[in-house]
Simulated assay, not measured.
Amino acid sequence: MKNKILILVAILALSSCQNKDNSKNIVKTIVQDTLSKTLGGTADLSEVSEKNNKQVELIKKQLLVLLKKDLPAMTKEDRSFYYEAFDLNNDKKDEYFVGFSNSYFCGSGGCSGYILNNDGSVINRFSVTDFPILVTTDSSEKFYNLLMKSGGAFHLMKMKNGKYPSNPSVQEKWKGEVPKETTSVLDIQGKQLEKYSF
């Protein structure tokens, strides 16, 4: 009888230890989930949405001006865009990468898009680009160099006379591995960026 009681006590002790480990795992999982959402930018931050709304409205207004001649030929689906903010010149003000993923702006060579200043003015229009765009840590004229994929290869895009080249496919091909220090922007499929209408 003593042996049966000792076995029962041992089983209870082991199961209570396992329950403690499970509660630690649950807490650990919640903490990791919260951290990943915060670091990944998917946490619900009400202040950010107000800033994003101002950025979206600025981009919408600019697209309506830039594409004024195209609007009559565009369908409702064509009139949508994705964007991502990034400070390209370390002036503490974001520039905006604006991209499209529909048949009006995309063809077999890639898609078109814009890089806008924080005031909405155009830095660049680009074509035949596959997303995402990679921002390197090297710079030219105080703006980070970009790697844009076109025709299955990355091409180096350097700022020259205040503009990046508009057609990546005719620029110097990037040789070797993509540097680990690059930042990916306009990863339309991977980051599941929000789509906006204009």
Rank of each mutant, 00 (worst) to 15 (best):
Y164W: 08
K149L: 14
H155W: 02
G151K: 08
S139Y: 15
V128I: 01
S140K: 14
P132K: 08
G151A: 09
P132W: 13
S150V: 02
K158R: 14
L156M: 07
V122F: 00
H155E: 05
E141I: 04
G151M: 03
H155K: 15
F131W: 07
T129K: 06
N161V: 09
G152A: 10
K160S: 13
Y144F: 15
N145G: 04
M159G: 13
S139W: 05
T136V: 13
F131Y: 15
K160T: 10
N145P: 04
M157Y: 12
D138R: 15
A153P: 00
H155V: 06
A153Y: 09
T136Q: 02
K142I: 01
V135T: 08
S140H: 13
S139G: 02
R125C: 01
F131N: 05
V135L: 13
V135H: 09
P132V: 13
R125D: 01
L146G: 03
V128L: 07
N161E: 14
D130C: 07
G152L: 12
K142E: 08
G152I: 11
I133C: 03
V122P: 00
D130Q: 14
N145F: 05
L146C: 10
T137G: 02
N124C: 00
N145M: 05
M148K: 07
A153Q: 11
L146T: 09
N161Y: 12
F154I: 05
F154H: 14
K160L: 07
K149I: 12
D130I: 05
S150C: 06
L134M: 13
S140W: 12
L147H: 14
N145L: 03
F126Q: 11
R125I: 00
K142H: 07
Y144V: 07
M157Q: 14
G162Y: 11
T129R: 05
F131A: 04
L134D: 01
H155Y: 02
I123Q: 02
G152V: 10
V135G: 10
L146F: 13
E141H: 12
S140M: 10
F154S: 04
F143V: 01
F126G: 07
T129S: 09
Y144M: 12
T136H: 06
F143N: 05
G152F: 08
M157I: 13
L146M: 08
E141V: 10
E141Y: 12
L156C: 00
R125A: 06
K142R: 08
D138L: 13
N145W: 04
V122H: 00
T136W: 04
F143Q: 02
K149T: 12
T136R: 03
G151P: 00
Y144N: 15
S127A: 02
H155M: 10
D130T: 08
V122R: 00
L146P: 04
Y144Q: 13
P132F: 14
T129F: 00
L134N: 05
I133E: 03
S127M: 01
F143G: 02
F131M: 09
K160R: 12
N124M: 01
S121C: 00
L134W: 10
R125M: 05
F154G: 09
H155P: 11
G162K: 09
A153L: 11
T129N: 03
